Amino acid sequence: MPFSRRITLVAAAAALVGLALPAHAQGADEPPVIRIGTLENGTVNWEIETIRKRGLDQENGFTLQPLILAGNPATQVAMQGGEVDTIVSDFLWVAQQRARGAGFRFLPYSTAVGGVMVRGDSPAQSLADLKGKKIGIAGGPVDKSWLILRAWSRERLGEDLADVTQQVFGAPPMILNAAETGEVDAAINFWHFQAKMQARGMREIMSVETAASDLGLDPSTPLLGYVLRDDWIAANPALAEGLARASRTAKDLLAKDDAAWEELRPIMEAADDAEFEALKAGWRAGIPAHGPVDAENAQQMFATMAELGGEELTGGVATLPEGLFWWPE
């Protein structure tokens, strides 16, 4: 049975047996369930499937139960409404929710970021060469990669990319297509779409990681993480720690075991071997270091993005709230 079909059936069954039950309310003979909201084609599913197929959830005393949702806003609504125990989201959204009293915390998941891509035959070799050109950007005007690249341009080139280029904003597939067809001269896309672009012969002229380092920021700061609730962690400390261990074990396995990736290939939707290898390399590059997030480094990253993104990005949050980042003791 295809992964998407199987995972959807699991989610449907969960709804029938009482989706809103807390983890400790499961049957006495069954391990407690951790419900995770995810997207049907999201790259988070690669880790979820590895945890479930390898029994890493059972080894750590729980059953990981995916609930397929329609989009990122739907996962956030499900988290806010208590329909799921966790989702994966960026630390800025988690910070906004915590600042508003939601009690959400952030467990590191990925540091994966993209960069600026151009066609293989493009004459552009650096961001300076994009002056007067058209850039396609996935994620909108407050996309985090775009903001860091703008900050780099302002510091190193003395001018804001937003002022000297024309921007086209759109969904990741649209930006990929626009870059391939030459509709835009360069593109900034989500990391897995950038991997597809690279596999199709495009090249990177500036990575967000390099830009962040040049700005004195820590590029190893994870932007994406599992979202957990304070009260859920307090009520289920062993489950929270078990989820962290299972996630880390899955990452360690995928970091070095090519056979584990072959098992995932059917759900990765790679067009060919080159795309498969690029997706695998991109995911591996985003594995965060083992250990807690450096809150001070994260604040510096936040401040850099907030300067250009403004309230549209920050939601009115001036500094990252205390206790935002969680790591098992």
Score class of each variant (00 low, 15 high):
Ala285His: 09
Ala274Trp: 06
Lys280Phe: 01
Leu264Asp: 03
Pro288Phe: 08
Ala260Glu: 02
Ala250Cys: 07
Arg248Asn: 06
Trp283Val: 07
Ile267Cys: 01
Leu279Arg: 13
Phe276Trp: 12
Ala271His: 07
Glu263Phe: 02
Ile267Trp: 07
Arg265Thr: 07
Ala278Tyr: 02
Gly282Thr: 13
Ala255Ser: 13
Glu277Ile: 02
Ala281Val: 06
Ala274Cys: 04
Glu269Trp: 13
Ala270Asn: 08
Lys280Met: 14
Ala246Thr: 03
Asp272Glu: 10
Asp252His: 09
Lys256Leu: 08
Leu279Met: 15
Asp252Ile: 03
Ala271Phe: 05
Ala259Thr: 12
Ala289Glu: 12
Lys280Asn: 01
Ile267Ala: 13
Asp272Leu: 07
Lys280Cys: 06
Ala271Gln: 14
Lys251Gly: 02
Ala250Val: 07
Ala289His: 11
Arg284Phe: 03
Trp283Cys: 01
Glu269Val: 09
Met268Arg: 09
Lys251His: 14
Ala278Thr: 02
Glu262Ser: 10
Arg265Asn: 10
Trp283Phe: 14
Glu262Asp: 15
Ala259Ser: 14
Asp273Asn: 12
Ala285Pro: 00
Ser247Met: 11
Asp252Leu: 13
Leu254Arg: 03
Thr249Glu: 15
Leu253Pro: 00
Ala289Ile: 01
Glu269Gln: 15
Lys256Asp: 12
Asp272Arg: 04
Arg265Ser: 08
Asp273Met: 09
Ala289Tyr: 01
Met268Asn: 09
Ala246Ile: 02
Arg265Met: 08
Met268Tyr: 07
Ala281Met: 06
Ala289Asp: 09
Phe276Val: 06
Ile267Gly: 01
Glu277Gln: 15
Ala278Trp: 01
Arg284Asn: 00
Arg248Lys: 04
Asp258Lys: 09
Asp272His: 10
Thr249Asn: 07
Phe276Pro: 01
Ala250Pro: 02
Arg248Met: 04
Gly286Thr: 04
Ala260Asp: 00
Leu253Ser: 05
Gly282Glu: 11
Asp273Ile: 08
Ala255Cys: 03
Glu269Gly: 02
Phe276Cys: 07
Gly282Gln: 11
Lys251Asp: 11
Pro288Asn: 09
Lys256Phe: 01
Arg284Gln: 14
Glu262Ala: 11
Lys256Ile: 11
Ala278Ser: 12
Lys256Gly: 06
Leu254Ile: 02
Arg245Tyr: 07
Ala246Gly: 05
Ile267Glu: 12
Arg245Pro: 03
Asp272Asn: 15
Glu277Ser: 11
Lys280Ile: 05
Thr249Asp: 12
Ser247Val: 12
Ala260Thr: 04
Ile287Asp: 00
Ala270Lys: 04
Asp252Tyr: 01
Ala255Asn: 08
Ala270Ser: 13
Ala259Cys: 03
Ala246Met: 03
Glu262Phe: 06
Arg245Phe: 09
Asp257Glu: 10
Pro288Arg: 09
Ala278Lys: 00
Asp272Trp: 11
Lys280His: 05
Ala250Gly: 04
Ala274His: 08
Leu253Gln: 08
Arg245Gly: 03
Arg265Cys: 10
Thr249Gly: 00
